[in-house]
Amino acid sequence: MSDNLARVGVLVRPLAKNDPQQIGPFRIIGLLGGGGMGRVYLGRAADGRPVAVKTARSELADDRGFRARFAREVSAAQQVGGPFVAPVVDAAPHDDVPWMATACVPGVSLTDAVHDCGPLPEHAVRLLTAGLLHALTAVHAHGLVHRDLKPSNILLTAEGPRVIDFGIAHSAADTALTTTGTALGTPGFMAPEQLVMTGPKVTGAADVFALGG
């Protein structure tokens, strides 16, 4: 199955010796990458469906505040629907290593598409923007803020764009601010209020700022 996913744009790397073989009900078969929260694995459900399983970094897992926020975020994220988001299928915020699994969507990131093929044509940009606006509307309707919307968190698929990682960015970012005094995000796509600890509350407006970026 991992070979099939690789052929349609999902890059899967072999597991290292210290990588888990099982997370929750999912058998882990490869490494997809890493990010602000932790590592992302390709998993396989009992019925054969592919899932992306994101695990928390150790400093996040050791923070009770993160676990509480993560549980709330997951609960809200599981309610988010629509054709332009990768849905949450399962999560365990209170496991020794907190994790969340989303549907694994075959596609290429916007970052890779632009890097490999150059700027998108105008009609494709219009369709992409419309899809992203629908995705953010669905996310914000459930009280979530993505906080790290960027080209690598946007997948281009045969059915249109998909926004990923919307269920964890808020809780992870709040923990980073509390424990390190620094913002968690990607320069160039972060709204001004994300860069200061004592500024206004971060709302969905920050995602709109990132979309403009």
Rank of each mutant, 00 (worst) to 15 (best):
198 T>E: 13
61 A>V: 07
50 P>Q: 12
104 C>V: 05
6 A>D: 09
194 Q>S: 02
108 V>T: 12
155 L>A: 02
18 N>H: 15
165 D>V: 05
209 F>G: 03
174 D>M: 15
192 P>M: 14
162 R>K: 14
139 V>H: 00
200 P>W: 14
181 G>N: 04
32 L>M: 13
56 A>L: 03
129 T>S: 10
69 R>V: 01
9 G>A: 07
85 V>K: 08
203 T>E: 11
15 L>G: 04
158 A>H: 04
86 A>I: 03
69 R>A: 11
94 H>S: 13
70 F>E: 10
14 P>R: 08
187 P>H: 13
200 P>A: 11
187 P>Y: 13
180 T>P: 00
174 D>K: 05
87 P>W: 08
163 V>K: 03
198 T>W: 13
74 V>G: 00
183 A>P: 09
15 L>E: 10
15 L>K: 10
99 W>G: 00
187 P>T: 08
47 D>S: 12
44 R>M: 15
179 T>Y: 08
149 L>G: 00
113 A>Y: 07
81 G>K: 06
157 T>E: 03
157 T>Q: 04
84 F>G: 01
65 G>T: 05
98 P>F: 04
56 A>M: 02
31 L>Q: 14
74 V>E: 01
141 A>H: 01
187 P>G: 04
88 V>P: 00
146 H>T: 01
116 D>S: 12
36 G>R: 15
164 I>K: 02
32 L>K: 10
18 N>K: 12
199 G>D: 06
208 V>F: 10
16 A>W: 15
144 L>H: 00
180 T>Y: 05
128 L>M: 06
149 L>T: 01
130 A>I: 07
75 S>C: 07
134 H>I: 08
65 G>A: 08
77 A>S: 00
42 L>T: 09
14 P>V: 01
3 D>P: 06
160 G>Y: 11
169 A>M: 11
76 A>K: 08
177 L>F: 08
186 T>F: 12
167 G>I: 07
138 A>Y: 04
126 R>N: 05
19 D>K: 10
63 D>S: 02
47 D>V: 12
91 A>K: 09
70 F>P: 03
65 G>E: 15
194 Q>C: 01
50 P>M: 09
89 V>E: 01
127 L>V: 07
177 L>Y: 06
24 G>F: 12
210 A>Y: 12
58 S>E: 15
6 A>T: 13
149 L>R: 02
69 R>T: 00
4 N>T: 11
159 E>R: 11
5 L>H: 10
131 G>L: 09
80 V>Q: 05
26 F>Y: 15
71 A>P: 00
120 L>I: 00
119 P>R: 04
66 F>V: 02
211 L>Y: 09
151 P>V: 06
190 M>G: 02
155 L>W: 08
39 R>V: 11
171 S>A: 15
192 P>G: 11
135 A>S: 06
208 V>G: 03
175 T>Q: 08
158 A>T: 08
192 P>I: 13
115 H>R: 15
46 A>I: 14
210 A>C: 07
93 P>F: 06
174 D>H: 08
15 L>A: 09
35 G>M: 15
201 K>I: 11
107 G>T: 01
204 G>D: 14
65 G>N: 10
121 P>Q: 03
106 P>I: 02
62 D>V: 03
27 R>K: 15
184 L>P: 01
43 G>M: 14
41 Y>T: 06
60 L>S: 02
